[in-house]
Design a protein around this nucleic acid. Structure first.
Length: 112
DNA sequence: TGAATGACTCGAT
DNA sequence: GATCGAGCCATTC
């Protein structure tokens, strides 16, 4: 056991992502005050595998809306299936209408 | 303590 | 417009 680290903060933000929406690593990093630490967010996701409650890492994608981390879900299709189940269109591992379903932690109170 | 890693991002060519 | 390279920051060995 250790004190809350950068990862714990990342988990909190990722869990705030509403279903049917997606966010980017940079957005989370920026919200945490480390916009340049976008890689740390990805690292946190790597540790989030055994974290509870589960972290909807499938709602976190890169700046291009590409499922860059789908290969780390165990099944490369798991991420796409989860996103599609929430109503998100994914084609060729890329999210469609990404700018439309993009969710920003700082705008969690903003309307669609 | 120092060096290496990483599911990213931006800038330049 | 697409592709390549460097930067950046926190955690781990």
């Amino acid at each position: 056991m250790s004190e809350p680290t950068f990862y714990e903060k990342v988990y909190e933000v990722v869990r705030l992502v509403p279903p049917g929406r997606v966010t980017s690593y940079g957005a989370i990093a920026k919200y945490l005050g480390a916009a340049r630490s976008s890689r740390l967010v990805g690292w946190a996701m790597n540790v989030s595998h055994g974290v509870v409650p589960a972290v909807p890492a499938h709602r976190v994608v890169n700046r291009q809306g590409l499922l860059s981390g789908k290969a780390h879900f165990g099944d490369v299709n798991a991420m796409e299936v989860k996103l599609t189940a929430e109503g998100i269109e994914v084609v060729n591992d890329q999210i469609q209408h990404f700018d439309r379903i993009f969710w920003d932690p700082e705008k969690d109170l903003t309307i669609t």
